[in-house]
Write a protein that binds this DNA or RNA. Structure first.
Lengths: 125, 125
DNA sequence: TTAACAGTTGAATAATTGCTCAACTATAGA
DNA sequence: TCTATAGTTGAGCAATTATTCAACTGTTAA
């Protein structure tokens, strides 16, 4: 990191920087926030979660729905499981998945509303 | 893609798959939804956006705030600019950035609430 | 018992991506 | 004019990651 790249001598507005730093959420909160959004920031995962927000589904049907392999879906479901975003129940050899985190479901819904309203022809800016 | 990996012959519940597929948002909407979340799904960007939600800031002060380089910040700001998430105004050689997309600001706020409430000691499940 | 299938998993690969470095532009002030 | 500094940018690098492939487990049904 070159010295010239970090404005260590003259920063523009020290008081403002100090005030904002104080008002900001703790590092860990922002890190977890980014992690939450990152889970939703992939087309495959967002499609899986959107589908599961409509109906409980097994791996095979999810794969069929997305036009991809069971393996790819299973890998993503493992990630979503580890983050407590989805839960599952076994019925014989079939595993049914559904949403587990209502907060994530809310964010998904919220995000969808924004996308749809901003995409609408006469949408307000 | 091995044949055995795509359940092409016997899917579990064809009627359900068809119904869900019909009820789901169009591909393009879901893709843009993922893109929106992806922008928020990085610690550096989420910290920049959170800071800008509190105050208009120049590149140098953002870098100071995050303890990183102006270059790293500028790269991320370029991305955020291209997606119309932030806007800027020039004052001499100083460039002030601020949020441009109220929808993103809402999502940020919504996400923060969820993180904070679920992190609180006596938070409801 | 055995064949078929739903699902999982680890390794490998390919693509994406965030940061660093160095060079550059443009503006302010001496 | 000359120097210092705010900011941008492109190339390169290292780390992450989504998917594929192949092998595996476990359950159902013949």
């Amino acid at each position: 990191m070159p010295d010239s790249d970090i404005c260590s001598i003259n920063l523009i507005d020290e008081a403002k920087v100090t005030a904002v730093k104080k008002a900001m959420q703790p590092e860990e909160v922002l890190f977890r926030l980014a992690e939450t959004f990152r889970v939703l920031g992939d087309p495959t995962r967002v499609r899986i979660l959107h589908a599961l927000s409509l109906e409980e589904l097994c791996v095979c049907d999810i794969a069929r729905l997305l036009g991809t392999t069971k393996s790819a879906v299973s890998h993503q479901l493992r990630l979503l499981r580890s983050l407590r975003v989805v839960k599952y129940r076994k019925d014989g050899r079939i595993v049914y998945y559904s949403l587990d985190d209502s907060h994530v479901a809310n964010l998904l819904c919220e995000g969808l509303n924004h996308i749809i309203t901003t995409t609408l022809p006469g949408a307000s800016p």
